[in-house]
């Protein structure tokens, strides 16, 4: 990594933080609807993995996906437009907060049903094996809560039985909605569940982006060399509630405060200064730049048009298919555009 890379990694983490903070504000002003799950506190995980994965590696995650969308390379303007449900959003305003993707960037969403994307990730890896994309690894993220659902176990088992190149990443932020790991999981360390499938596994610290980078690139190398799945449990923490409607009765303010002192952006900043990679002034400039990117994203999203009525019937099917609206067959057929 050269200095430019360090600075851009730092800036990415700050942009993700700022975009989430602005999202919370826009949500409270009624500009973002539905559910909103913020990634604040977990930035080192997506930035770390995003900066060491290769272009052929597929990324697939759950509904806490804005950070992943940005680290996968989607322009924050496009992310913000999707949050506001606008035409320029990555899903043209039809997906929303939980359903962001960009197939050209190998970012496969954004899936809202807890754990349902886990078997799909196994299928993505199967696709690569079948087509002999030998260097590709599918990187699949999920929360600690998703490891208690059947999808997780069927997906893990299949990946091991078929020796699929999947990096299973549990972003353990220690709560499945409001229920702590200790109250929901039979084992206290999520990584132990991989043992049941004879799968390599490890628990790593996830608040330091340099640490995430180091461990994940080592594990990706192992998968590329040896094939087969690997489960990484990455310890992290979300500072905000599960979603914007979370009263947070389940954890003490002191607990949140303790983790905030270990802030991933603060840790990385101190590292960059201590290692003399960047000065405080240079990092302040990055902060200002991130502020500007965020502001431009909000302005772009606000100015983006609402999807037109035609969008309602686009993409139901790939092939031309008769469509009906309120009991009448429409002249135009739904098809690709």
């Amino acid at each position: 990594m050269d200095k430019k890379d360090y600075l851009s990694l730092y800036q990415e983490m700050v942009v993700i933080r700022r975009i989430e903070e602005r999202s919370a504000e826009l949500y409270q002003r009624g500009k973002i609807g539905g559910f909103l799950h913020l990634y604040i506190g977990q930035e080192a995980v997506c930035a770390g993995i995003g900066s060491v994965r290769q272009a052929q590696d597929r990324i697939i995650t759950a509904y806490r996906d804005h950070g992943w969308a940005i680290s996968a390379g989607i322009d924050p303007k496009i992310v913000m437009a999707e949050l506001l449900g606008k035409q320029d959003g990555c899903s043209r305003g039809k997906g929303g907060s939980m359903h962001m993707a960009d197939v050209d960037l190998n970012f496969w969403g954004g899936h809202a049903i807890v754990g349902a994307h886990i078997p799909i990730a196994a299928g993505l890896a199967l696709g690569d094996v079948y087509q002999k994309n030998d260097e590709a690894v599918t990187i699949c993220m999920f929360g600690d809560g998703a490891t208690n659902i059947g999808f997780f176990h069927e997906g893990l088992n299949l990946s091991k039985v078929w020796n699929l190149p999947v990096l299973w990443v549990c972003e353990n932020n220690q709560y499945g909605m409001g229920t702590s790991v200790g109250r929901a999981s039979a084992v206290s360390e999520i990584r132990q569940k991989a043992e049941g499938y004879g799968m390599r596994n490890e628990r790593i610290e996830g608040m330091d982006v340099m640490n995430v980078r180091k461990d994940v690139s080592r594990v990706l190398d192992t998968i590329r060399k040896e094939g087969g799945p690997y489960l990484l449990e990455i310890m992290t923490y979300r500072y905000r509630g599960h979603s914007m409607g979370d009263p947070e009765r389940y954890r003490a303010k002191e607990e949140v405060k303790k983790w905030e002192e270990e802030d991933p952006i603060g840790i990385f900043r101190r590292y960059l200064v201590a290692e003399k990679i960047a000065t405080e002034a240079e990092l302040d400039t990055q902060d200002d730049e991130a502020e500007k990117i965020t502001e431009e994203a909000v302005q772009f999203a606000e100015a983006s048009p609402n999807p037109g009525k035609d969008e309602l019937f686009e993409h139901i099917y790939v092939e031309p298919t008769p469509i009906e609206y309120r009991g009448y067959k429409l002249e135009k057929e739904s098809e690709e555009n």
Binding site: P119, I120, A122, L126, D128, Q131, F151
Partner: peptide, 28 residues
């Protein structure tokens, strides 16, 4: 065996896995 794949008795893995493979351009 690569084109006629026996699966575990796990319908979530069968349909979920087939969806993932289809997304990569295959026709499961």
């Amino acid at each position: 065996p690569d084109r006629v794949k026996d699966t575990p008795i796990a319908e979530t893995a069968i349909v979920g896995g087939a969806i993932g493979a289809a997304l990569t351009g295959l026709r499961p």
